[in-house]
Design a protein around this nucleic acid. Structure first.
Length: 567
RNA sequence: GCCCCCGUAGCUCAGUGGAUAGAGCAUCGGCCUUCUAAUCCGACGGUCGCAGGUUCGAAUCCUGCCGGGGGCACCA
């Protein structure tokens, strides 16, 4: 019996097409087909929208017709005569301008249910990105205040993307860059110190009540602060600033934890400025030296420059200001080199649209450092989020805090909604919709489908239905064929989402899967009615129910959303 | 002025060059003594911003224009 997945169908079609190409080549002695190579990519099958077009469909004949010099329908004819022989394929037909439509035999399709159950949490995981060592940097918000709405989209998207990449076999380190050096930190320190000492806020102080709260905590934990400030203002500032920073960073980590967002590494900018233990140059100095050796650094107007224009940037950038202080960009460059030195191939940056001016210079640093700017660096730019109907936070100075959003909407609804759209698509949060427990709210729709699979499982146990038999040939109801097809698609969805760095594909898929499940549930009973005896069909359907629940769970996990057993 | 993103149903948005462009919401209408009706079924709804081009085939790729958003620091 065939266990036919879309991947296996693509492979089989690729073999058939290769044979046809070979045969033509030997007949025409090379010629036009000389360079022609068929890959699995060329023979991808897709799930047709229209059921009359079979279970799986390929446009390979149309793609290759011109290159082979054969009319598309004629080539399709040659392909289907052999495709009908693929184990598990019941019918192969030509349609329209040259589509190849394949219909699986019922039992082969039904085998999917058992395969999913057997593979469990591993179903859908693959090796499309095996061997890739990826650094994924996102959020990286200044530790001078709470996370707010501007950070939430990148937190959700970045974490989900990392999970999807891992599911496709990549080795991913997710990383948060802490801007804990520089003027913003000093401003933050002065703001908190003033609050702690009950002094009026400095003119350029950070707004928001959280500064006052930090000030109170600093005052409690540093009882001698006022005394110290009288004797040595700078020392007091240092202590207050450092403590406030640690408190704030801990708060940020807590918020991320509640949002189910995990970072492998929190990377401190300070470590880039610090010289070595025995007076070695700091990583920034070392980085500038390395780039100078590569011939990309020059001095002009008392400043050190890097010639990013050699790598497509629209202007050269400075590493030091006139006063000798390193720019933020110098640290960025050193940070990039650190990522290289730590063995990462592709470095992914997830930035807001307000940072799109950074693409040119980041890419240029990659090039200057000797990386391949096509493959070793990816800068994903996301559009900002609008919010309807939220209250602004007084605590954080009229911005909306992540913690408030979590309390208001819950982590699941927020994560799901933010992961549901491509990064470059504008997105609005609608509080009313996200709080609703109906079809308007896609996360509930999907979670409900999962809870239903659990309810069926519980009821089946009560009714004495076990998994002692599995008869896939019985899964022939149209809603069963449809649901099985959805389950077969899942590994391809994960691989595609990973390759394109688009986790929203998973959420869209989950909604389709949930819809297929709900329709099946409505049409096909697992638990017999009345006095009807339990049969193989009921037991086999229980496997299918399990399989649907498993894939819903696997998919929700990639988005970082829980899969409750009851709602 | 230059650069990036967006423009698809009344609304919010999917759509990796393929078949009659989809989903949810909204509106209207159906199905509950049966595994959870938080589900399901049906109807209504389109100049895919506009105009050219490439292609057997374009919402998708290219060019120009229109409209909306963002960015163009020896700031962090």
């Amino acid at each position: 019996m065939g266990r036919v997945t879309p991947q296996e169908l693509s492979l089989a079609l690729a073999r058939i097409l290769t044979d046809i190409v070979e045969e033509r080549r030997s007949r025409t002695e090379g010629g036009a087909t000389g360079e022609l190579v068929v890959t699995v990519q060329d023979t991808q099958v897709e799930r047709p929208k229209n059921r009359d077009h079979g279970d799986w469909s390929s446009n390979a004949a149309m793609k290759f017709a011109k290159r082979l010099g054969v009319p598309p329908r004629e080539l399709a004819e040659q392909i289907i005569s052999r495709a009908a022989e693929i184990d598990g394929v019941a019918r192969a037909e030509i349609a329209g301008p040259g589509f190849i439509n394949l219909t699986l035999d019922v039992a082969s399709a039904g085998e999917t249910a058992r395969r999913v159950v057997e593979q469990g949490a591993a179903y859908g995981r693959g090796d499309a990105l095996a061997g890739q060592v990826i650094n994924m940097e996102f959020v990286s918000a200044n530790p001078t205040g709470p996370l707010h709405m501007g950070h939430t989209r990148w937190a959700a998207l970045g974490d989900s993307t990392a999970r999807v990449l891992r599911a496709a076999g990549a080795e991913v380190t997710s990383e948060y860059y802490i801007n804990d050096a520089g003027a913003q930190m000093n401003k933050f320190g002065r703001s908190v110190l003033a609050a702690a000492l009950h002094e009026p806020a400095p003119e350029d102080a950070y707004p928001g009540e959280y500064i006052q709260q930090l000030g109170s905590r600093v005052r409690e934990q540093l009882p001698n602060l006022a005394e110290l400030a009288d004797q040595d203002r700078d020392a007091a500032l240092d202590q207050a600033q450092e403590l406030a920073y640690q408190l704030q960073l801990a708060e940020i980590k807590d918020s991320l934890e509640r949002f189910n967002v995990h970072f492998d590494v929190f990377f401190s900018e300070r470590t880039l400025h610090a010289p070595g233990e025995h007076g070695e140059p700091s990583p920034i100095e070392a980085a500038i030296d390395r780039l100078r050796e590569q011939g990309h650094v020059f001095t002009e107007d008392d400043a050190i420059w890097v010639r990013t224009t050699d790598f497509g940037d629209d202007k050269d950038r400075v590493f030091t200001r006139g006063n000798g202080v390193y720019t933020y960009f110098a640290a960025d460059a050193a940070y990039y080199l650190s990522k290289m030195d730590r063995g990462f191939g592709e470095k992914i940056y997830l930035l807001g649209a307000d940072h799109h001016g950074y693409i040119g210079r980041l890419t240029a640093i990659a090039g200057a450092a000797g990386d391949n700017i096509e493959t070793d660096i990816t800068v994903l730019i996301g559009q900002l989020v609008n919010l309807n109907g939220a209250r602004l936070s007084k605590r954080a100075g009229n911005i909306i805090e992540l913690d408030d959003l979590l309390e208001w909407l819950g982590a699941d609804a927020l994560r799901y909604w933010l992961a549901r759209y491509p990064a470059d698509s504008p997105l609005a949060l609608d509080g009313e919709q996200l709080r609703s427990r109906t079809n308007d709210n896609p996360v509930f729709y999907v979670q409900y489908a999962h809870a239903r699979t659990c309810a069926v499982d519980r009821n089946a146990a009560t009714a004495g239905i076990d998994r002692s038999t599995f008869a896939p040939g019985l899964l022939e109801h149209p809603t069963e064929t449809d649901l099985l097809g959805k389950l077969q698609q899942y590994p391809g969805i994960v691989a595609g989402a990973a390759e394109l760095r688009e986790p929203h594909r998973v959420t869209r898929y989950l909604e389709e899967l949930a819809a297929s499940f709900h329709r099946w549930y409505d049409n096909c009973r697992v638990i017999p009615l009345g006095e009807e005896p339990v049969g193989d069909l009921h037991r086999t359907r229980l496997w299918l129910n399990d399989a649907a629940g498993q894939v819903l769970r696997n998919g929700l996990d990639l988005i970082g959303v829980t899969a409750p057993e009851r709602l």
